[in-house]
Simulated scan of single mutants.
Amino acid sequence: MGWQGERLSRAWVPAPRWWMSPWSATLLAVSLLLPPAAGLSVTQEPANLTEGGNVTLTPQGIPDSFIMNCGWFRGETTDRANRIFIYYPPPSPRGQINGAANTGRERRVPTCSLRISDLMLNYSGVYTVVVTLASAAPAKASVKIAVSEHFISTDHAAVIGLALGILAAAALIGGLLYYFLRVRGRSDPSSTQAVSAYSIYENISPSGQVKAEGSLDSNHTTYQALQHGDRAVYDRLKW
C-alpha cells in the first residue's frame, strides 16, 4: 500500500515543459539582445575645455544597430525649445533635423555624438541625449561641461616676452646704426670732395683740352703750357 501510494503520487507530478512557441522564443531572443536603457552614458573628449576649443560628447552603452533615433538637448529638459538636433539613422530618409537651440557650432558625428566647435564661456552647462530604441523605452543621459577662459601659461609667456625683447633690441640697434652712418656721411664730405676734384682735373691739360688716355703727366709738359708774360706791362710800371 505504501509502495502503491508512492507510485501514484509520482504519477501525478507534471513533467517539465522544454518546448515553447516560436513567438515566445523570438521575444526571449530580442529581450536578451536589447541593451538595458539604464546603461546609457555620455563621455566627454577632451576632459579639459577652454574657450575657443572643441568638444565631442558621445553616447555609450547602446549599440548603434538598436538606435531608431537620437536627439541632443541643451539643458536637462527635453523641450522642443532646447533641442539642438534629432537624428534618424538609415534607412530613414529624414536624416538630421536641427532644432531651435542649434547655433551653427553644433554638429552630429557618427553615429549620435555631438561635436561643438569654437566653444564660448556661456556654452558651459548640461547637455542631454535621448535615444529611442527599437523595442524598449527611450534611454536618457546627461553630461555637464565646463568651459574655462583661454590663458597663456607662465612658461609660454616668458618665451614670448623674451622673443619680443630680442626683436625690439635688434630693431633699436639697427636704427641707431643707420642714423649714425647717415649723419657721419653728411658731416664729413672731405673724402667725397677730394675724389670728385681729382676726377675732374685729372685728365684736363692746362690748355683746356682733355688729356689723351694713356699719356704721361710730367712737369715738363706742364711748364711748356705756361704762357710768357707781356713785356709791355712791365714797361708801363716803370713809368
Rank of each mutant, 00 (worst) to 15 (best):
V13R: 13
A134F: 13
P93D: 10
G161E: 15
A139M: 02
A25G: 09
I84S: 06
N102T: 14
A169V: 11
G61D: 11
P138R: 01
V147Q: 02
W18C: 01
P16W: 06
A136Q: 09
A38W: 02
S199K: 14
N98D: 15
A157W: 01
T154Y: 03
T56A: 13
E76A: 14
A168S: 11
N69T: 12
L8W: 09
I160Y: 03
V13Q: 07
T132C: 06
M120F: 09
A212Q: 14
I166C: 15
S41W: 00
A157N: 07
R184W: 12
Y234H: 10
V131H: 03
Q4C: 11
I200Q: 11
G229M: 11
E6Y: 07
A169P: 02
G104E: 07
Y179N: 13
R17W: 07
Y178H: 09
V30D: 05
N122D: 14
G39L: 12
C70R: 02
W3H: 06
T56N: 11
I200T: 07
E45A: 15
G95A: 07
T50E: 09
I62C: 00
G229D: 06
G208V: 00
A232F: 03
V130P: 00
H156R: 07
M68S: 12
E106T: 07
H150A: 13
E149N: 07
I200G: 00
P59S: 06
P90V: 06
P16C: 07
P110N: 07
L34M: 12
G165M: 08
I200C: 05
A101C: 08
S124D: 04
R80T: 14
S205P: 00
V195H: 14
P110G: 01
A37H: 01
G5R: 04
T128I: 06
F85T: 03
L49C: 04
S190W: 04
K211C: 02
L57E: 04
W239E: 13
G2E: 07
P36D: 11
V147M: 02
G2Q: 04
A100T: 12
S205I: 01
R236C: 04
R10L: 14
L27I: 08
Y198F: 08
A168C: 03
E149V: 10
D155V: 08
A100M: 13
W3Q: 08
A197W: 01
V129C: 10
I67A: 08
L181H: 07
V147S: 04
R10T: 04
L33A: 15
L57V: 05
P63I: 04
S41P: 02
D79R: 14
W239F: 05
S215L: 02
N48W: 10
V210L: 10
S21R: 09
V42G: 00
L57T: 04
D235E: 13
Q60M: 12
T56C: 09
S218D: 08
P16S: 11
L34D: 01
E106D: 05
S196P: 00
D79S: 15
N82L: 14
A169D: 01
S24E: 13
I204R: 04
G165C: 06
G104K: 05
G71M: 03
A11S: 15
A81L: 11
A194R: 13
